[in-house]
Amino acid sequence: MANKKFKCTVCGYIHEGAAAPEACPTCQAPASAFVELKAEKKLPTGSNAYTFAYAAAMVIVVAFLLSFVSSALRAKQDANVKLDTKKQILYSLNVTTADPDAYFSKNVKDMILKGDTIVEFKDDFATLYETEGKKGNFHVFVCNLDGQTKYVIPVYGAGLWGAIWGYVALNDDKNTVYGTYFSHASETPGLGAEIQSPAFQKRFEGKQVGDSLSAVKISVVKNGKVEDAKYEVDGISGGTITSTGVDAMLKSCLGNYTKFLSK
């Protein structure tokens, strides 16, 4: 005989038995005042089978959810990334405009290296220049800035915590730096992340990339240790590894362009 529980609605007394008592022992309420308490259904949260089933179901649900969100938003995200890349390229040219897309298609040409000259890049606008570099597509953005020609070269490398990248704009002598833009994925705020600050990026203006361009001479040195102001740029104190990363990034990426730049 299964024991059922009955609760007195008058005083709250709980009676255990097959049926409700005739009268409540504490407040003498009749049997009709009792209601049966149904045992709460408990899921077998301790059993192995349940645990496995739960884990499997959870993984499938979450996987579907994430891939659904990711594919539903892919197109919009790609458009954002392209727009942002164009903004960054224009930033290195000190151009701020409300409509980067329009400005870009009017004034900037996406070219790639072929031998020591550049030819037009015919594919869709690319945003991952590291992958492009591995494919042998070294991009140069040729920009017409109020009648003057500027060359923008994308650079990429590694900082302390993650990727760093940027764009270096050169004057039409292909040697003097006109402007730069640097950004990072996860450098330390206040230290390495300062490469994103205009104050740091302005330090590159007017520097020379190299002399005869047999090698890239522009470099980032420890804060306050600039000896040759023609090529050397002050690093960030406290952000040494990120500064070194910028230095290595400039040397390796601009190094791919020496033939084009020395011509």
Partner: peptide, 12 residues
Amino acid sequence: RKTIPLRIRIIV
């Protein structure tokens, strides 16, 4: 909370 298996609750 009532459905989560106790032994893998942190993972969940």
